[in-house]
Write a protein that binds this DNA or RNA. Structure first.
Lengths: 208, 208
DNA sequence: TGAAATATCACATGATTATGGGATGGTCAA
DNA sequence: TTGACCATCCCATAATCATGTGATATTTCA
């Protein structure tokens, strides 16, 4: 018997999911609330779930914050996001906050059930569309849109990012420090930055 | 009818999967080879698949390189990794190379079929265990081992990372620039760095 | 309680950076 | 062949940074 909690503001959905889970022989819904605040208030030994289905767009505290909060206080509980949002931002924020799954609300009951089982067994579950988003996260950095910087300029950026001074870069590239300066001037102009710090930041953000 | 390719060095497995797919009414295995080299050699209009099941541990060219190669030459083909490896390294390398799915070899035929369908519809599919690994990638950086920096110091680091000058940070924190300098001195000492550049780099690497 | 850590400030000096001028020669495509 | 880039160099100046040597007040914790 897997004990499941639900945080979902839509009464209809909350009720339907709860009813469905309670109908299953191997599930029970131990606590279903419309907000994180209420959920935390009613959370006790009696109602403690193993898995929580968590909506994100909630009145009061957001689901993302809710995930963080619950994970801090009950690290053993696994959370599955259950939402209509499928933008990368929400997905990554949820995962970073500690979610172990991400279901879209159009998922059929059977998929919800399946996801809960998987997470309960120590796996993770995502709707295919979400998985695609997540996977593209790893691939995106690859297709770096042809940098507007020339080869030499990129080489110099790499040096700066590695913490080298102009002089060190000059030595490494067998050019004079004046040339390094000159390149950096045009790099700054192209990227619209005005300091090494900004440049390094942009570089790490993958915007080069 | 979804056309599927297989790259898998184990003859038994290759044969079994091919047979299974060919038995399905909505699948056909258009090409099954034991290495990337052979696969590329026999790849033509006739044999062109929409989805490829790709082993990683292959004789000759590795599956990872194979994924890159195939994606470069045929960007429309989607690849699903099919392997025994479940270590993060292999997973991330595969995803970065361009894979749209990652199945473990213990997956039942039905899961393989399901995964191919999902990927064919534009989604991505991972075995639950793999999904867990991927998700933990996002959560790992969270457990940053209690920074040795004090709150104030961290605040200043954030400023520097955002490209602010000492003076700007001083203004923002309502302290004098001398104090900023002082904090930065101890930050540098603690982190064993000697320039903004190195500090920002460390910060982005998550080693703070 | 008393030492250690933290947060705040000051002054000084040399190094490095940011930014503005220019100049020369090479490549490549219109 | 002309103009648009690119890579290379030089000079100059003001701002900023790295680092040192202090000092004082508060907080923390053993």
């Amino acid at each position: 018997m897997i004990r499941v909690g639900i945080v979902e503001d839509d009464k209809e959905i909350r009720g339907a999911v709860k009813e469905y889970l309670d109908d299953q022989s191997d599930f029970s819904c131990s606590l279903a609330c419309e907000s994180v605040e209420l959920f935390m208030k009613h959370l006790n030994e009696e109602t403690l779930p193993e898995i929580i289905l968590m909506d994100i767009g909630l009145p009061g505290m957001s689901g993302i914050k809710g995930i963080k909060l619950i994970k801090e206080q009950h690290p053993d509980i696994n959370l599955i996001v259950f939402t209509v949002y499928h933008d990368s931002d929400k997905i990554f924020q949820s995962l970073c906050a500690g979610a172990s799954g991400y279901l879209l609300k159009n998922a059929p009951f059977s998929e919800i059930k399946q996801a809960i089982k998987i997470v309960h067994e120590g796996g993770a579950s995502m709707s295919p569309q979400i998985a695609r988003n997540v996977i593209e996260f790893f691939q995106a950095p690859k297709n770096k849109p042809e940098s507007i910087l020339t080869d030499k300029e990129q080489e110099i950026v790499m040096g700066l990012v590695d913490g080298m001074s102009y002089q060190m870069i000059a030595d490494q590239c067998y050019i004079s420090i004046e040339t390094v300066r000159s390149h950096i001037k045009s790099i700054y102009k192209k990227l619209q930055v005005h300091s090494k710090a900004e440049l390094i930041k942009k570089s790490f953000e993958g915007s080069i």
